[in-house]
Design a binder for these strands. Structure first.
Lengths: 122, 122
DNA sequence: CTTGACCTTGACGTCAGTGTCAACGTTTAC
DNA sequence: GTAAACGTTGACACTGACGTCAAGGTCAAG
């Protein structure tokens, strides 16, 4: 299939698909006319990438998963490197949550000081 | 005082001070040579801005606090609009935390599926 | 008079993931 | 044959809070 069909089937813009390719995540054969040619595997790849982006991964974070699928695994998380990224991501998320909780407390404290009557739930 | 001294006293780069001015948060009289002239009040203003930025406010969020101090209040949080911003910020932080917790759970679930033996604390 | 520290404005680079447009070639349908 | 719909690459725009450089004006000390 060509890029338009892949875009439609994955719900990802053609612009994004070219961007992914530009960063080495997607590879496409080219027809004699220069058009990109994709397969069913690419649909899975793109779906995997989007699922990861959706939970806060950066594009770069998805690379091991893509490599993993390319090496024959049906899911991108089946390789050691992917598992490492998962764990690193979890740690990052935990750190962000910790930071936000700290901030929340600081903001609440400032509010309480500025406006003693204002309730702050939490 | 001139911009260099203000920068040194507040620990904020001259670049940032000019950036704040560019966005209407800081105002400076100009000397006959064109140099910016600041007062002690500006030190307080900048300090307030940085304190708010440090807890996750955007520059735009600090505007009501700046206006509040300019209208004579010794602290930027003493005005109704500032209190509103505080409360909005608390809501935003809560929302972000909620989102991160959701993501954390999703990532943990994906990890568990890819690597059944991997522990996930939390 | 010169050096050097300070000031000025303007503009580009950063990070991520696209949107959008230009200017052009290809394919498909009528 | 031609127009519409598709494809190509390249490049600029956007968000936010600056860093950094360029090219120059100002001022105090020696």
């Amino acid at each position: 299939m060509r890029i338009g069909e892949l875009a439609e089937r994955t719900g990802v813009s053609t612009r994004s698909l070219r961007y992914y390719e530009q960063h080495g995540l997607l590879r496409a054969r080219r027809g004699s006319n220069g058009y990109r040619q994709y397969t069913e595997d690419d649909v899975k790849l793109v779906t995997e990438i989007r699922a990861l982006l959706a939970v806060g991964f950066t594009l770069e974070d998805t690379r091991p998963f893509v490599d993993c699928m390319r090496s024959g695994h049906s899911t991108g998380g089946s390789c050691a490197e992917s598992v490492e990224v998962y764990q690193r991501k979890l740690a990052e998320i935990d750190e962000e949550i910790r930071l936000l909780l700290t901030r929340r407390a600081e903001v609440a404290a400032q509010l309480a000081q500025s406006c003693p009557g204002c309730f702050v739930r939490g």
